[in-house]
Design a binder for these strands. Sequence first.
DNA 1: CAGAAACGGGG
DNA 2: GTGTACGTTTCTG
Length: 648
Amino acid sequence: MVKKNFILLDIDYVTYDEKPVIRLLGKEKDTKKNIIALDDSFVPYLYIIPRGNVDDCVSDLKEFENDEEVKINRTEIINLKDFQVPKDIIKIYFKHPQQVPKSRDIIRDLDSVFEIREHDIPFYRRYLIDKDLTPMAEIEVVGKEIDEFDNIKSSEDLTLIKLSKPPKTVSTDVSDFRMMSFDLEVRNPYGMPNPEEDEIIMIGIDSNIGIRKVISTKGNEFNNDEEMCFIETVDSEKEMIESFVKTVKDANLDIIVGYNSDNFDFPYIKDRAKLLGIDLDLGMDGSNLKFLRRGYTNAATIKGLLHIDLYLVMRRYMSLDRYTLERVYFELFGEEKIDVPGELIYQFWDNGGEELKNLFKYSLDDVVSTLKIAEQTLPLNLELTRIVGQPFFDVTRMATGQQAEWYLVRKAYEIGELVPNKPNIPQKVMNERGSNSGGFVKEPEKGLHENLVQFDFRSLYPSLIISKNISPDVIYNDKLEKNYSFSDEFMLDDINQMNIEDSIENTSINKINNEKDNSDVKDYYVCPEHYHKFKKEPQGFIPSVMGNILAERVKIKTMMKTSNDPIIKKSLDVQQQALKRLANTMYGVYGFSRFRWYSFECAQAITAWGRQHIKKAMKEAENYGFYAIYADTDGFYAKYDKNKRKNN
DNA sequence: CAGAAACGGGG
DNA sequence: GTGTACGTTTCTG
């Protein structure tokens, strides 16, 4: 039995002996040796909310015991909360994750099944959540070292461990990842590069471990040029790619970054490598570079080596109208990059001399800048990864709303709350609903203003979510609670989620009409304009999560103040920034129709209260002689005029 | 005008 | 693979 601590870089599962085996891929902290830890004890499952009696539903499910298509391994009854209402839930286990989507549609159609839940949570994500594992953190595993598994052999550089106990997270205080940036230049005289025709002419590499070079078939003429000593000249394109592969393997990297490398560099190098008969076996387990389909686009993945495409990261990191490498670099560092227009690259290459020299410099500049951008932006994304608790690879490719959603899924599991299904609201309904009105904006008054004072609310929307308890699980709906109370009649009417939403929609109109004679309004927060009601007790799921985020942020900011170590200070600062980002994103989960906690009422309530607050603040400021000349959402600029002061 | 298709980044 | 981006701009019928 051995105990090993290592940094969890990546996670996946393979099928071995018809059973899923979770693989935790990472590197030992000090030796940087590769580790793959295997767990064959984790089993896929989903939840069923029965329509009526739990036991009737269980006996219905028994009929699938020897079914060809629905392969239920085991069922159990557990108690979980659904929007804070305790319910008896049937948890059904399957042998293999791929049986879940095959079986769920059949099970869903049973009369005794009201709803199935948590049927679309990928197996590796489920593992991270259920085992409370944090990616990019130090984890501890206990198990047996094995020599071989699934054609992977242990070696000097790779330890295979079969877990005998659940893994655990030991420390999230991990930095100093071995990182490399890379970039291709292609000779493309006829429009955009075509991998069947156009050869790769340069591969640029920079890293935080001392490797910086441009591999090319040209460049010998600069042999005696001190300035150009970064050139590595080889005899052919084949040797160039082979040298790149060897450089990456020998560097024993944690992270490889590129700019638009999901869509250009990696697909291109893969196509050329195939043409030239080269293996891109860069994976920790010896596997090749692969592409994961993510929607209509691909993500380039290497097992145990994190590939991060900075283009995707930058689109989330800053708000710009364009995200070219040049633009992003300029915005971050205020310096212009060397630029060679794409359509001129082949001419620079063909002409040689000074132009070729500039092309080499451009190639190097691209990878140096890419690495600099990575060093500047990845720390925040590493913190987000640890908070969200999903793989770094995934988090850097997720929309911020999805980051918030996976964070909430984890929090829901922690407190025994069922995760809502992804809503499926028809486009027609969304169109009728229209878009939620946003923050209050007062167009700026023209002219040059003096004596300006800036007012703004600290985290207006997060604060409102907490103070007004804005959460879908505590919306008070007169009609639903009084007349239906989720009675059997209601459910047997085969009313799906959509109809429930409709009835909520209709009753909000009733509420406006009945608002005045509602005597127990003291138990609710009633939002302006729409009059949605939120119970004061108990605290809603999202307000409570939000409260924890803000409390954690305050704690970190206090720690920052007491620390004298600039490195610790910096690391804490990044952590609090990540929490701030997450808190600000949480509003979004209410407003986007494909999110699990989507609630048009909550989204409306937040912005309505937001508008009310800023208008109130502007009015109040007037009493002190401050006149707003421009306002937007959570703050305004005001001009001071002491003659108009009403209060003293 | 609404719905479909293209676009982004990369050379 | 417990799977099929996304939000915006431009084109087309």
